[in-house]
Amino acid sequence: MDVLYFARVRERIGLPRERVETDAATVTDLVEELRAREECYAAAFADLSALRVAVDQELTDFDAPLAGAREVAFFPPMTGG
């Protein structure tokens, strides 16, 4: 699936998007896999309460299932308006 990062998360990880091969069942499982990769991922995902997630471009929760998902995006709380 494609994993996208925005704003501070993008800066911490150093990439706007990447292709990830995963069998993660939920967003939390995917986060655990990413955290284990490198220090910058561990730092970006240190505090999930300060992160939001969208699966296939819909806001959702970290316990959301990933079966069939094509795109997962991680970002800080939004500051529109």
Binding site: A7, A54, M78, T79, G80, G81
Partner: peptide
């Protein structure tokens, strides 16, 4: 729109940039 539309603001000042 403030909290549920996916926008992020960054301020750039002479002291640097911050979200």
């Amino acid at each position: 729109l403030k909290s549920r539309a996916p926008f992020w603001k960054k301020e750039i000042t002479e002291r640097g940039a911050d979200w």
